[in-house]
């Protein structure tokens, strides 16, 4: 297609896209490259030794603590993703299929509002809700549902999953909603006219067509949650600490930027591998039953 388009259109296109592209190059690609390079250097007290070494990676992969944190981050982010997407799907479905068109944007607006407001304070309030003398325990004890406060709610992986599922809800709802909106409604009628039940129509028509949105939702929730710092720090307790907390400690407290860089690179690699498996795996799963 290149030969018929005018040369000047290409030039103008590049000229227009250049400022954001250069910005992203110098403030994203170059810094990420710097982290990669730094991860192969080492910290010698105050200075950085610039000889190539794999020592940081050896330490990061052999020390049980780092391995545990990395594995736990993937597990917590995975659990968060599953919970968030499962909870989000019915909402997206409800708004797309059962809300009258003129009220749809109001619903989407209502869903996105809590997401924009003070992240730190929201996470802190989950601590207030889930704590030993917290809102949930006092309410349930007041109602006589439980006799003693529940202690499994706060300062562990559960509380991190609950809080993150709350924080990332709109990220899961919006892509699924968009893909549901794109479904041609006459396809559903056709399926029903041809004798499929409502449930089978959902499974064989709606769900496969919504798959791109679901895959997008899974990735958009999983990738940032692996590296979340605030939630594990505030509500995670010792059993809910994740890799981002260790990266922060290496950089800002132990002043070991090279080891912190290696951990950051490993975290990004893990995220990339999981993201590839998810997008390829689910894509195949959906296309298979043809």
């Amino acid at each position: 297609m290149a030969f018929w388009q005018s040369r000047s259109e290409t030039t103008k296109g590049y000229a227009t896209v250049a400022p954001p592209l250069l910005y992203a190059f110098f403030l994203l690609a170059v810094p990420l490259g710097a982290v990669l390079v730094l991860s192969f250097w080492s910290q010698e007290f105050q200075t950085i030794d610039r000889t190539f070494t794999l020592a940081n990676y050896r330490e990061a992969l052999s020390d049980p603590l780092y391995r545990l944190l990395l594995w736990r981050s993937v597990k917590i982010a995975g659990a968060t993703t599953i919970v968030t997407v499962l909870l989000a799907f019915p909402i997206a479905y409800f708004v797309s299929f059962h809300v009258p068109p003129h009220k749809k944007s109001l619903w989407i607006f209502l869903i996105t509002i809590p997401f924009w407001t003070s992240y730190l304070i929201r996470v802190f309030l989950w601590k207030v809700i889930l704590g030993y003398g917290g809102v949930l325990n006092s309410a349930l004890m007041g109602l006589g549902v439980i006799d003693e406060p529940m202690t499994f709610l706060l300062y562990n992986a559960n509380s991190v999953v609950i809080t993150l599922a709350h924080a990332f809800a709109p990220f899961a709802i919006l892509p699924i909603f968009v893909s549901l909106e794109k479904i041609d409604r006459s396809l559903l009628e056709a399926s029903r006219d041809l004798g499929e039940s409502t449930a089978m129509t959902f499974l064989r028509v709606t769900l496969p067509l919504a798959a791109p949105g679901v895959i997008a939702a899974i990735l958009i929730v999983f990738i940032p949650t692996v590296g979340d710092y605030v939630t594990p720090r505030l509500v995670g307790g010792p059993d809910g600490t994740m890799i981002a907390n260790m990266i922060q400690v290496q950089f800002l407290q132990l002043s070991n930027a090279p080891l912190g860089s290696a951990l950051a690179v490993l975290a990004m690699l893990t995220v990339t591998v999981v993201a590839l498996i998810v997008s390829l795996g689910i894509g195949r799963l959906v296309r298979a039953p043809k």
Binding site: L27, P31, V35, F251, A257, A264
Partner: peptide, 18 residues
């Protein structure tokens, strides 16, 4: 250009700090 949308923010913070 859209990558920062999905990158964990701590990675952005750390890499710029480096």
């Amino acid at each position: 250009i859209m990558v920062p949308l999905v990158l964990p923010e701590i990675i952005v913070g750390v890499s710029l700090l480096v």
